[in-house]
Nucleic acid binder design. Structure first.
Lengths: 223, 223
DNA sequence: GACTTTAGTCTCATAAAGTGACTAATTCGC
DNA sequence: GCGAATTAGTCACTTTATGAGACTAAAGTC
């Protein structure tokens, strides 16, 4: 983050660290040491010999002192869009971080996704792509489960899905799909959350099942 | 392709050009000028100031003299896997090319995907990711349609989907889904292909429709 | 003309999804 | 203590999607 891109690294590795903060998704931004700089995604110009995977790990550790619970590469960004560095391209990663357990290091701040400060055009594009990456993987990896504590109520789980998908879900349908997927098992604990009936706590405990085999889907509207 | 990566470009842009060759998918490989080199995906170390998009276009034009009908970035590859260049990372693209109309330039050869010559580890990983990218976009972009001539029979379309997905599809289900998607319209032409009933020709002519709104899907089996 | 081959349709069975209403267990105001 | 409000959890009904096989149609082969 601090160093300028060296001659041997005209690319950067940028990481979008996402968390669920209350009812919103938030990402981690930094201004580095200079207070007058723009906010920016944490990034790093890898050392010679440092792989992009290793660089992304290091960026995350610099920011939160530990590893995200899930990481995926988003892609390479460049195409003339400006970046805090002079690098031609930036390889971007998303990482998910449970909010409760993690506090960012000095200089890093969570910003709700709906109210981000101005970013460089390239990093703005990276953030938008990060959202799409999360949503497209939501049904393939236990993303929502890992953003929650080890036990959780089904309402909490549904709210997490709603947050990540950016849309409301129907309670009965959600639970039916969840049951069919054999992904959670009930504990014998219940939690009373003020008013209303207490909710049973569940834990993530996936069981093997046969992969549903589907035909084709035509999901595109036009050209 | 010919040049070594310069000091200002320690990354390459690699392109997987895919076509349907008879009953198989094939990709375009080159050995460059040296007959004793390994076969490799077409790649290029971008000039200073050349964007990755522009570089991918140029790689494709060098290989087939025109643009693929559909292109998408696969991602950045590196992580210590070897590559024909010395570059730390390679940004990979997939491009689709209709086989009938395109003949590769000198030095480039189509290889069926099931029978590829040895590639560098990094390019091997790129090819595998290319397949996954195509399959995951197949329901979101008119990929199969563009690999076919402008008019085609529904059997041809189904075979193209089967080829791209790597699995058989049920005829009636396929046609029903296709009809529901309003993507093709019949022409008044028919084609007789030797024995059997002549098939009606269709053209790709998508009509607007409301996007199907679905709930959640839990498509992952375990961790 | 009977048989084969490919195209195209139909129907039935089953599974998945959308939806609203219903019951259950708790707190809050009074 | 009791009813309203609130949240959890389930049910029943409808609609839509999917899988599968059988059936009809139109050509060629012999």
């Amino acid at each position: 983050m601090r160093e300028r891109p060296s001659r041997t690294s005209p690319y950067t590795v940028d990481v979008v660290l996402v968390t669920a903060m209350g009812n919103e998704l938030a990402i981690l931004l930094t201004r580095g040491s200079n207070e007058r700089e723009r906010w920016a995604l944490p990034w790093r110009a890898p050392q010679a010999g440092e792989t992009i995977g290793a660089a992304s790990v290091r960026v995350a550790e610099d920011a939160i002192g530990e590893l995200p619970i899930w990481t995926e590469q988003i892609g390479a960004f460049g195409d003339a869009k400006r970046h805090p560095s002079d690098a031609e391209i930036s390889v971007a990663f998303v990482g998910l971080v449970p909010h409760q357990t993690v506090s960012p290091n000095a200089g890093y701040t969570w910003f709700p996704m709906r109210d981000l400060p101005p970013l460089s055009p390239r990093q703005r594009a990276i953030v938008e792509a990060a959202t799409r990456t999360i949503q497209s993987r939501l049904d393939q990896a236990p993303i929502a489960f890992r953003l929650l504590p080890s036990t959780f109520t089904l309402s909490e789980l549904q709210q997490m899905y709603e947050l990540l998908l950016g849309k409301r879900l129907h309670k009965a349908s959600f639970r039916r799909a969840l049951q069919g997927a054999w992904l959670v098992e009930p504990t014998d604990e219940w939690r009373s959350e003020g008013r209303g009936r207490p909710a049973q706590l569940f834990r993530y405990a996936p069981k093997k099942r046969r992969r549903p085999h589907r035909g084709v889907r035509f999901d595109f509207l036009y050209p």
